[in-house]
Design a protein around this nucleic acid. Structure first.
Lengths: 340, 340
DNA sequence: AGAATTACCGCAATCGTTTGTTCTACTCAA
DNA sequence: TTGAGTAGAACAAACGATTGCGGTAATTCT
């Protein structure tokens, strides 16, 4: 068994309270004794028990990361992986631990809508990342647990959020295609498409079209099929063979669309131009390299964590901040003027 | 503030011990009172405090996931993302929480070699995934915290591990190339290359060559450059322009090698065949689709978690198991007979 | 030198549970 | 009717820390 503070106290003939003060750099213990205590603590390899401490201090030095998507979808998306990495870096540097859970897959005994670790008071705060269901937000709000939402902003709520300017980004991408001369442009979506980033990106696509005087056509937009962007792109090409460009809701689906185009014997960008969103590493490795919007996903994760720590320090009473990251267009070889 | 067991006790005029027993399905409380208690608990939205419970039961219902790589590298590798997902699924189904940390990046106050959550008794057990440094293994062993290692097996230690048969897998891949007629075959590595999966795969590559009577040439093997597989492939092609095939330590590096080949005007597989390892989703989406070894990464994560729970149940005294997953060759369009 | 201040340390309550033990009241067989 | 046996509930001691309070002894002030 690991040494407790009591063992330490006995082996030194000192009171436990004094030990606690000495080890936590609190005043009220002489420099001489303090030295003896730290030395002995190191010798016995003493570590304070997190539970005991958490019980009395009401703080756990732990923050939770709650995914809005199911775990596998979450982790296999490089965008979210980046956000995760940013969050992890920030929490690690502040010497906090990190718990992970998904709000999309309920555990058999999940109580209410939020995972048990928040409801059991085992995290000081929470980072919610991705399009979580709205009742989860509600449950979190009356759980009194401070939280910040990343990459999702339900319009109805006034929350602390860190998001990218998705609508603008998609508009920039679509404008880029329009300026190249494209007129028949499809949109390959992802799930969920009725809310969250992909919805906003769809809006931006639509805005750009309408600004250019091009009618928005339902059949050129296809949400996520089970098989993802590949199947969606197929459907769009079937519905309208004249499309010369595709806007994908993200890079992963854009690359999947590459496959659909190849299968139909179409080449990128000669026959069909393709743009993505996020600028994941693969976007640069495929051929042709993908025109996309670069977004600082690690920075977003970091920023969200910073904001959360700020809330924790200020006592959760501050007014919500909405932090918006702006994406940057990077033009590569997947876009060109339309075929004749 | 959240209701405690004491509030519950007072509002019912019942002793706290009775409440505890009633809510934990323990005998010693009448069916009548038990009903009243659960009803009231739901009404007050009572949740047991995780710390208080953990303090007395010495169990936290939490397991830790410790990455051997730095967080970003870990999460952006689809293989590890899959393992993570498998672990998460299994722990969630068993109603345990999950903590994450990386052993590669030390936190400023990291005590010893292991993250503070294990040393503070805040996890029941640990899953170590990836090539962790050997002193971390040592530190874990005398921390008395049960753990299982995934995708890494230091030969010197007798540990509970879940790994793929990397050496065999790489041999199978290399044999596949040899049978197609290739004689000049390079190996693009990854970090670390002196231990762990990539090292074993290098061994398998070497074995296959030697079985075929082909000399192993140091200059055809290149470890991970900072820029990854792309740069490595470049170096190999410079060192020996006659290479007609590349074995990559994993799919991510294989796809990066695609880029290097493209940059030199070589086409896959006409000029150079490429094989990867892991069968990540992107392997199927790129062109040409990648010949690779399929490994059940989610299954590995699950299995490792299952083994850990078994250890927890049996009291950590059982003899170590080594569980080996066998990878499966999937031949796609990235391999063909060598050019003349 | 006596009083007042300070510095240091021990004492004990507390956090919210679990769990072994004790107490009470009841049932049932002799 | 009495005794044992049993079930249901209360009591209280942990678990391992933190922290306000009180008590010495040493130091400073007048």
């Amino acid at each position: 068994m690991r040494a407790t503070i009591k063992d330490l106290a006995e082996s030194l003939g000192v009171n436990v309270g004094t030990i606690s003060r000495a080890l936590n750099d609190k005043p009220g213990v002489g420099p001489e004794l303090r030295k003896r205590i730290v030395r002995k603590a190191a010798e016995l390899d003493y570590r304070p028990n997190g539970h005991a401490r958490g019980l009395v201090t009401q703080r756990t030095e732990t923050i939770g990361l709650l995914s809005g998507l199911d775990t596998h979808a979450f982790l296999s998306n490089p965008f979210y992986a980046g956000v995760f990495a940013g969050i992890e870096a920030e929490t690690r540097e502040r010497n906090h631990a990190l718990m992970f859970a998904s709000a999309a897959q309920k555990s058999p005994l999940s109580l209410g809508e939020v995972p048990k670790f928040v409801v059991e008071n085992r995290v000081d705060g929470l980072l919610v990342v991705g399009p979580v269901e709205v009742n989860v937000i509600g449950a979190l709000q009356d759980s009194r647990c401070p939280f910040v939402v990343v990459d999702y902003h339900p319009a109805a709520e006034d929350l602390d959020t860190v998001v990218t300017n998705n609508t603008r980004g998609a508009r920039v991408l679509t404008d880029h295609l329009l300026q190249l001369g494209h007129r028949h442009i499809g949109f390959v979506g992802g799930a969920p498409l009725d809310r969250g980033s992909y919805h906003e990106r769809l809006l931006g696509y639509r805005e750009a079209l309408e600004n250019a005087g091009i009618a928005y056509r339902q059949e050129l937009v296809h949400g996520a099929a089970p098989a993802g962007g590949c199947e969606s792109a197929m459907k769009i090409l079937e519905a309208e063979p004249r499309v010369t460009a595709l806007v994908a809701c993200n890079d992963v689906n854009a690359l999947a669309a590459y496959g659909a185009l190849r299968a139909r014997g179409l080449s990128v960008p000669k026959d069909v131009s393709v743009v993505g969103f996020d600028d994941v590493p693969a976007a640069l490795e495929v051929w042709p390299p993908l025109t996309t919007m670069r977004v600082d996903r690690v920075g977003m994760g970091r920023k969200a964590a910073q904001r959360l720590f700020q809330k924790l320090a200020e006592g959760n009473a501050t007014s919500p901040h909405q932090i918006v990251f702006s994406a940057e267009l990077v033009v590569r070889a997947s876009t060109a003027a339309p075929r004749k």
